[in-house]
Each structure stands twice: as C-alpha cells, then as structure tokens.
C-alpha cells in the first residue's frame, strides 16, 4: 500500500528550477531515505509534500490527499520535524509537549497518554519541568521527534534530523526511527550521512533537483555500480590518486580518510597493475591493496561523477 505518491513534481523559484520533474512512491510503514547534497532540492521537495509550499507543476498524494488541492487534509495526516530546531527553548519540556499536543487537538486524557510516551522515548520522565534550552542535543532531538509524532500521524517527515548530533545520539535516534516505523508510521528522512542511508528500506538520490537513483541500498550497489571497488592504503594518497586517475583501467577515484577507493573497469585484472602504476613515483610506500564491498558512498560518488 502506498503512503506517498509523487508525480512529476517540480518547483521553480523565479528562474531557478529547485525540483525538476521528480516522481517516486513510498510504501506504508517503510523508512524511506532521501539523499542529496545541500541545495539539491531535498528540503524543497519535503516542504511541498507537507503542504507548506505549493508545487509549480505536478502533484503528490500524501496519505491519500493531494498536496495541490487538499493541503489542509495532508497536514492532519503528517508529522514534520524541520532542519532547524523546532521546540521553544524558553518553555519547559512539558509546556512544549502541551503546546504541540494542543495544536494537534490533543487535550485531557489523550494528551496525558501521549505525553507519557514522548517523555519515555526522550528519556525525560521526571524531568518535565526542565527548560528545553538546558537539554543535551541528542535528547532535544528525540523530544522534537516525539512532539512531531505526538498525534500518531500516518507519515512523518524528518528533514536532516541528525545534523549536529554526536554519533552515539545518532544511533539512538535511528533506533527510535525504526521503532516508529515498526508501529506502522511511514518515515521519510533526509540525511547526508550515507552510513545512515544503509538503515533505510528504500532510497532515492537527487542531484540539482533531478532524481538520479532509486532503490534499496543493496540494489543500488548492484545496479548502479558495475565496477569493482579497490581500496588502497599508502603514504601519500593524494599523489597516488593523481597517478592512478590517469590509468585507463580506472574510472573514478576518491579519498576516504587515508585510503583511496578506485572504481576499476573491465581492463583491470590484477593488483600488480595498481602497484606498478604507483611505483612510477618511488617515494610512495604502498601498505595494502584490497578489493572491497562498495559502500553507498562509492555508489553516489560514481553516480554524481557520471552525472557531470
């Protein structure tokens, strides 16, 4: 069953085409990753899907309602957590929950029940009277997510929810996302942490407003990346990369920390090709050359390079 259906959605700001004819579907209850560089059009797409930005052309059905014609009904179905911090820093934890609950029409017993749940997932039981500004980043983020889904929406949009949060808090946050999705809520999440994308059921990648890849993390690696990926560890990766990028058996090169990732084509047959090539500069000392399972990052670098 489809939760979101996007049909040829476009948004123009003046002459700038921010979102260019994007179509995709999201199944009910899945965690859907929405990837792309800053300025690729992720937030613009999400804001159109939330009914707060009118599309220039195309349409989308969110929870069964058209964002073009029934944005008010869409708003009843969704929760949204924006890129910016969305809680009132000068209110207490409980006052924030009461406010957002009230805004969604939750009062009395229903509100209390949901309040308990939000406090539980954000580890704030007994700390209802703390001023929100004083909470640590990870906790704030969980509280923000809790208030965004306080009304049990069918779909929740999370726009870069983990930016600026430490790795441990990020992992806890993703556990929470999985919990919410297990209860049947569809989660559409944008991120630029590619390791987070591995947790998603389905992913789309957009670049310059265009959709350039679509699939599960596994199929993306298989379908879009025919090449093998070789990881090389050596002393001077920048110089080594410059030498290797001129070789005919190499399609793409990229640096991951101290390592080089090479995307090699069918001309490639053995490690010696690489070591011979690097040795033309005798100052570089090779430590290791291994074929690896590609990461999503390899896939995206390949796709973005190809797109240029």
């Amino acid at each position: 069953m489809l939760s979101i259906e996007v049909n040829s959605l476009s948004k123009k700001f003046g002459k700038f085409l921010a979102v260019d004819n994007v179509s995709f579907n999201v199944n009910k209850g899945e965690v859907f990753g929405f990837l792309g560089a800053n300025g690729a059009g992720k937030s613009t797409t999400i804001r159109m899907l939330c009914g707060i930005l009118e599309p220039t052309s195309g349409d989308a059905k969110v929870g069964g309602f058209s964002v073009m014609n029934e944005p008010d009904k869409v708003k009843q179905k969704i929760g949204y957590m924006s890129q910016k911090f969305s809680l009132y820093n000068d209110l207490t934890v409980e006052e924030n929950i009461n406010f957002y609950g009230g805004v969604y029409g939750l009062f009395g017993e229903k509100l209390n029940e949901r309040k308990k749940w939000v406090l539980k997932i954000s580890d704030l039981k007994g700390k209802e009277n703390l001023i929100t500004a004083s909470l640590p980043g990870g906790i704030k983020q969980r509280l923000a997510l809790g208030t965004a889904v306080i009304h049990n929406p069918a779909i929740v949009f999370l726009d870069e929810p983990t930016s600026g949060v430490d790795p441990i808090a990020r992992r806890q946050f993703w556990e929470l996302i999985n919990d919410i999705s297990d209860r049947g809520t569809t989660v559409l999440v944008t991120t630029h942490y590619l390791e987070e994308a591995e947790f998603c059921n389905n992913i789309i990648l957009i670049n310059a407003g265009k959709l350039i890849a679509h699939g599960t993390p596994a199929t993306l690696k298989k379908d879009y990346l025919k090449n093998k990926i070789i990881e090389i560890e050596c002393d001077d990766p920048v110089s080594a990369m410059n030498i290797l990028s001129k070789e005919p058996f190499v399609d793409d090169t990229s640096i991951f920390g101290n390592n080089i990732h090479l995307s090699v084509n069918e001309i490639y047959n053995s490690k010696t090709q690489i070591s011979d090539s690097i040795k033309t500069n005798n100052k570089i000392n090779i430590k290791r050359i291994d074929p690896i399972v590609p990461t999503l990052e390899d896939v995206f670098i390949h796709l973005l390079e190809k797109g240029k």
Binding site: K75, S82, K84, S86, Y88, V103, Y104
Partner: peptide, 14 residues
C-alpha cells in the same frame, strides 16, 4: 528566526 514558525505551519493550525 528560531524555526518554530515552520514547525507550527505544518500543523493543522489555520
């Protein structure tokens, strides 16, 4: 400025 306006306008508030 603080970002809460965006959060409030995605709610069903008129």
């Amino acid at each position: 400025e603080i970002g809460t306006l965006e959060q409030v306008i995605v709610t069903p508030i008129k």
